[in-house]
Amino acid sequence: MARTVNLVAGAVLVGLVVLVALVSFAWTPHDPLLVDASLRLSGPTAEYVLGTDRFGRDVASQLMVGARTTLYVGVVAVGIAALAGTPLGIVAGMRGGWLDELIMRVNDLVLAFPALLLAIMLGAVYGASTLTAMVAIGVATVPSFARVARAGTLQVMSTEYVLAARAGGRSRAWIAGRHVLPNISGLVLVQSSVSFAIAVLAEAALSFLGFGTAPPTPSWGRMLQESQELLAVEPRLALIPGAAIALAVLGFNLLGDGLRDRFDPRLEVRR
């Protein structure tokens, strides 16, 4: 069926990135940090499949280790966003009234603040690092989780099974844990996948600007940054990490879409 194509394609791409990152812990074709002036800007050869950069480092090895950085940043950023945003959204949706207003207006404020600017500010204050990038991306992503969780919560709270739980004398905490959370988990998962794609992109952008992962740790964004001076001479160095970023982002987006189809509540009823 057409709707499973997204899911499968997304899962394959994401799986590939994860696999590469995992393999890089145990094995890379070469030391990604080894500088060898005699091998500068070598094109693809049998030994250096993707060639070398201007310091003679192996591009394939850097790409593999860079996948780690990408996933690490994505997991932490999305983790921060989901762990903070989902409970906020549930509280806003369940309590309503002034608390809902307060949470959602603060949410709007954060949403209006550009994530990159936040990262650059954090980087300026605490020194640019992978950590500041992750925290900035995470904080900036909290609102999207809060919104999704709130919308889902409102929907769950209007169902008869929540009425039945209240008529059965169950507390708000019980309803939040037993009914709301399990029923919005699909939505949160979809949001995680989509946010992951955005986080990958943001990390690349930050590293490219020099506010993300610091040298010498390989990162796709930094590989792009280092390639810019040589763009006319050696476009390969920009195209390779660019393609990796594009594929990873595509993978997480497809996975998100696929999961959305899978968790569509309208399909659930007819299952």
Binding site: T159, E160, Y161, L163, A164, A165, A167, G168, G169, R170, W174, R178, H179, P182, N183, E268
Partner: peptide, 18 residues
Amino acid sequence: GSLDPRMRVRDIISEPLG
């Protein structure tokens, strides 16, 4: 609509008993 699709029937029925 009055039964939570993600709960087992025994958990649904015993819900008023906490």
